[in-house]
Amino acid sequence: MTLEAPYATLSPDVVLSAVEAAGPWTDGRLLTLNSYENRVFQIGLEDGGFMVAKFYRPGRWSDEAIEEEHTFARELADAELPMVAPLAFDGRTLLRHAGFRYALYPRRGGRAPSLESPDQLTWLGRLLARMHAVGARGRFAARGVLDRSTMVTTPVRAALASTLLPVHLHDAYRRAAERVSHAIDARVDAIGPVARIRLHGDCHPGNVLWTDDGPHFVDLDDARTGPAVQDLWMLAGDERAMDALLEGYGQFRDFDPAELALIPALRAMRQVHYAGWIAERWHDPAFPAAFPFAAEGRWWEQHIADLHDLADELG
């Protein structure tokens, strides 16, 4: 295992033996689930059930940060929120095997929520308000902050250092990124201070699974400190959807309407981060296979144009 090929030694046998090292007996069934940052598997158990094994990307998070993720998930679940929390074995949720750090979870199925349904959006708004009420009760010490340094400065540096970005586009990309960065700063300064709490951090529809009994949330891997609106905007495709989310949210927690003006800045930060994330992870064989378009100059040309559009929107 190396940082250039972090999962080269994570064979099916290693995955299954890691699960059995924690205690559960497997039946050999293994299904790779959709995940690029980490590696996640559905594992069949000897008793006929399933569990999910998540192997953390080496070098990304400290042990303390992962343990904070697990503690937050447990805190939410203990507050009777539908958050899938890791299982504990001998009092530990962060496990180790064959040089990998991993955690085991109960399997919870479901489908993507209908973001066209006002009822489902209102339901999600209520749950997010309750999640944020729990998030506001404490602080992260080891996890990241949703800020320009993390979401813009670092990924821009990764893109410029990557062979993916064509050399002849370096100056154009740098100018576009600088425009976005300055525009984000101006928007944040104009809004002024807003409350920052512990968040899910990556609350897109793929991390919300809907069942006949309602939704549940998965994957706190990007849990960070930031404004409450971060967990709302990715579920709201338009103003009508945001209104439905906030209708439910307001039943359990006050929402500062000034945060709505942060959405264009948060959207811009996410788009800058996306390109830098791909560039930084390109050495992982999963990334060229999943994102082949990033190796094409025309994709970077469009990305640069998109950054200018985002800067114009923020201006």
Rank of each mutant, 00 (worst) to 15 (best):
146 L>C: 11
117 S>D: 15
23 G>V: 01
45 L>E: 01
146 L>P: 00
202 D>Y: 03
113 P>M: 10
121 L>W: 01
16 L>Q: 09
270 R>W: 07
25 W>N: 07
231 D>G: 08
246 L>W: 04
198 R>P: 02
91 G>E: 07
95 L>W: 01
7 Y>H: 07
254 D>E: 15
203 C>N: 13
300 W>A: 07
123 W>T: 12
109 G>V: 02
277 W>G: 01
191 I>R: 00
205 P>N: 13
125 G>F: 11
123 W>Y: 08
160 L>W: 08
137 R>L: 14
299 W>K: 01
54 K>R: 14
165 L>M: 09
255 F>P: 14
210 W>K: 03
73 A>H: 00
21 A>V: 00
125 G>D: 14
178 E>R: 11
126 R>S: 12
229 V>P: 11
89 F>D: 03
293 F>T: 10
293 F>K: 11
151 M>C: 04
304 I>K: 04
128 L>N: 13
220 L>V: 08
125 G>K: 14
286 A>V: 09
50 F>K: 10
202 D>M: 05
163 T>V: 09
275 A>H: 12
149 S>N: 12
254 D>W: 07
101 R>T: 03
230 Q>Y: 14
210 W>P: 02
283 H>P: 00
274 Y>C: 04
1 M>C: 06
99 G>R: 05
162 S>V: 08
16 L>N: 06
104 L>D: 04
61 W>N: 13
37 E>W: 07
226 G>W: 06
282 W>Q: 08
120 Q>I: 02
192 G>T: 08
26 T>V: 12
149 S>G: 14
119 D>R: 11
81 L>P: 03
283 H>Q: 15
271 Q>L: 11
92 R>T: 09
283 H>S: 15
211 T>C: 04
219 D>P: 12
55 F>M: 05
130 R>S: 10
166 P>G: 05
295 A>P: 03
217 F>T: 04
305 A>D: 09
1 M>V: 12
269 M>P: 00
82 P>K: 09
31 L>T: 13
196 R>H: 10
136 A>Q: 13
103 A>C: 02
90 D>M: 03
77 A>I: 02
229 V>M: 06
139 R>G: 08
92 R>S: 14
27 D>S: 03
77 A>N: 09
22 A>F: 01
293 F>H: 14
58 P>V: 01
284 D>C: 05
167 V>P: 00
83 M>Q: 09
106 P>Y: 03
258 A>M: 01
177 A>I: 02
23 G>K: 04
48 G>N: 01
9 T>Q: 11
203 C>W: 01
263 I>W: 02
40 V>C: 12
200 H>P: 00
288 P>I: 03
231 D>K: 15
87 L>Q: 14
298 R>V: 08
118 P>V: 04
111 R>M: 07
94 L>Q: 08
228 A>Y: 11
130 R>F: 05
171 D>M: 13
65 A>K: 14
262 L>Q: 08
217 F>M: 10
35 S>M: 08
130 R>Y: 08
148 R>E: 09
292 P>L: 09
22 A>S: 08
210 W>S: 00
274 Y>W: 14
122 T>D: 12
231 D>I: 15
21 A>D: 12
168 H>M: 02
271 Q>D: 15
150 T>L: 13
224 R>E: 15
250 G>T: 13
